[in-house]
Computed example of a mutant assay.
Amino acid sequence: MKQYYILIGKEEFIIADSTISRTSILDAAEEVLRRFGMAKSNLSDVARALGVSHAAIYRHFDNKAALREAMAERWLNHVMEPLNAIVANNDEPEIRLRSWLDTLRAFKRSRALTDPELFAMYMALTAEAADLLHRHVEDMLEQLTVIIADGIAAGVFAPCDARESARAFYLATTRFHHPSHAGEWELSDSDINYEITWKLLMNGLTIRS
């Protein structure tokens, strides 16, 4: 069986022709974009990194735009996976809501802090995929709607339009998780602002005796 070499970072791996997959292409594309930047990277660079021809790439992606959108989608899916688990667990609604927000915030802060170059790259990729980004936000709003609706049903949250409250909650917390605010996340007052925003939102949502 014919073999190819793939270079990911400083590690070189041998892969067989039959194992050239979307995942291996996306991994290679990420490294190519990291090395050459958004403007200078192209499908030829990705094919070269994998040791294959253009045809091997085109079997999975129609063009450069499709590859970039797939990269953005994979990044957003990484964000959604832990959030989906939180929505589905059996914790009390207020605990799930706090865990959802903490997890989203921690994911974004961690990526921005540990690999700012890669974080900036994915910011640019998601900005290119407007429809994909819109669906991602809608999915997060649906998650929040489910948690808030559960809280209303349990008598923990005051009766309200769960969808409207979800949108208000998302918008009110945007500065703590939206990449455009990444420059503010490590400021000295960031944690304090996070806590007072959370308290205000809970005062609005919870039923007070």
Rank of each mutant, 00 (worst) to 15 (best):
M1D: 09
K2S: 07
Q3L: 11
Q3N: 10
Y4G: 06
Y4S: 11
Y5Q: 12
L7T: 10
L7C: 02
G9A: 10
E11S: 13
F13D: 10
F13G: 03
F13L: 12
I14A: 11
I14H: 05
I15V: 15
S18L: 05
S21I: 08
T23L: 06
T23Y: 00
T23K: 06
D27H: 09
D27Y: 05
D27P: 01
D27G: 00
A28Q: 14
E30S: 09
E30C: 08
E31I: 08
V32C: 07
L33D: 01
L33W: 07
F36L: 05
G37H: 07
M38Q: 13
A39K: 15
S41R: 04
N42R: 13
D45S: 12
R48P: 00
A49Q: 12
V52D: 01
S53L: 03
A56N: 00
I57P: 02
R59W: 09
F61M: 12
F61L: 11
D62I: 09
K64Y: 11
A66W: 09
A66G: 07
A66F: 03
L67G: 08
M71K: 06
R74M: 04
W75F: 14
N77M: 00
V79H: 12
M80F: 07
E81I: 15
E81N: 13
P82M: 10
I86P: 02
N90I: 04
P93G: 01
I95C: 00
R96M: 12
S99N: 14
R105I: 08
A106H: 14
F107M: 11
R109M: 09
S110I: 06
S110F: 08
R111Q: 09
L113Y: 09
D115K: 07
D115R: 12
E117Q: 14
A120W: 01
M121A: 02
M123H: 03
A124D: 12
A124W: 00
T126L: 05
A127W: 03
E128N: 09
A129H: 06
H134I: 10
H136P: 10
V137D: 08
V137W: 05
E138P: 01
Q143T: 03
I148W: 03
A149G: 04
D150I: 05
I152Y: 03
A153N: 06
G155R: 10
V156E: 11
F157Y: 14
A158D: 05
P159E: 03
C160I: 02
A162V: 06
S165I: 05
A166C: 11
R167T: 14
R167Q: 15
R167P: 02
F169W: 15
F169G: 02
F169R: 02
Y170E: 04
L171A: 12
R175I: 13
R175V: 13
F176H: 11
H178P: 00
S180W: 03
H181D: 13
A182Y: 03
W185N: 05
E186L: 14
E186I: 07
L187F: 14
L187E: 15
S188M: 13
S190R: 01
I192V: 15
N193Y: 05
Y194E: 06
E195K: 12
T197R: 01
K199D: 15
L201Y: 04
N203C: 08
N203F: 11
G204Y: 07
L205R: 04
I207S: 00
R208G: 08
R208S: 12
